[in-house]
């Protein structure tokens, strides 16, 4: 464990909690892409299947349980409890266009072909693009609630910090995982224009609105 990865995991946890609180407190999931949340739940489910048969550390297991529980709780809030506030008209990204390429790619480029490794590789590729339905929805509505922009910033910052963690691990442990690094860089790049808008607007107290 290193400080960059710890900060990354904290950002990740903050993002998930902020989203849950936003939906719970405002009793509304307006502006939130349920499809992205489905993809995130799938990412954690396919990545953390080892939760039941390997033990890395208490921290690792506790965080996995939190991520799994909170992602399914978010799905429940969106598609069951506050279903009436779900903006399905704007949440129209075709996630099959993300799922199928990720399945194919995880069969073409993977460390090995054991089921758990294939699931891990699929989850890495899927996580890189899981935010696309949400970013697509923000571009369609042209704006996002400030709390939603904080959620997106924390979520983007988590993987950006993981890139720093990978650089650190490369130089200190000569550890590198090319699949995770490439996917993580793509994932972070997808947030680039959002980061720009967030820093130039939201941090100056303005609303998060895309230039018309």
């Amino acid at each position: 464990m290193n400080i960059f990865r710890l900060l990354g995991d904290i950002c990740h946890l903050v993002a998930i909690i902020v989203l849950l609180l936003k939906i719970w407190k405002t009793r509304s999931c307006a502006g939130i892409s349920g499809k992205s949340q489905i993809l995130f739940a799938l990412v954690y489910t396919t990545r953390y299947v080892d939760l039941f048969f390997t033990y890395v550390s208490l921290y690792n297991s506790v965080m996995k349980v939190i991520f799994l529980a909170s992602s399914y709780a978010t799905l429940y809030l969106i598609y069951v409890k506050f279903k009436a506030t779900y903006d399905f008209n704007h949440d129209t990204f075709r996630i099959e266009f993300l799922l199928i390429p990720c399945v194919i790619l995880s069969l073409l480029i993977t460390h090995d072909y054991s089921p758990v490794e294939l699931l891990w590789t699929f989850s890495i590729y899927l996580e890189a693009v899981a935010i696309l339905p949400q970013l697509f929805m923000v571009s369609k509505t042209g704006e996002a609630e400030t709390i939603t922009s904080h959620y997106l910033f924390a979520l983007g910052a988590y993987r950006a910090l993981y890139i720093v963690n990978w650089i650190y691990r490369y130089y200190t442990e000569s550890f590198i995982d090319g699949i995770a690094v490439v996917a993580g860089i793509i994932q972070t790049i997808l947030y680039a224009d959002f980061f720009y808008l967030y820093i130039t607007k939201v941090l100056k107290g303005k609303d998060f609105k895309l230039p018309a």
Partner: peptide, 10 residues
């Protein structure tokens, strides 16, 4: 290396 050695990150 085992799965958890390779993938010790979240």
């Amino acid at each position: 290396a085992s799965f958890s050695d390779l993938h010790d990150e979240l």
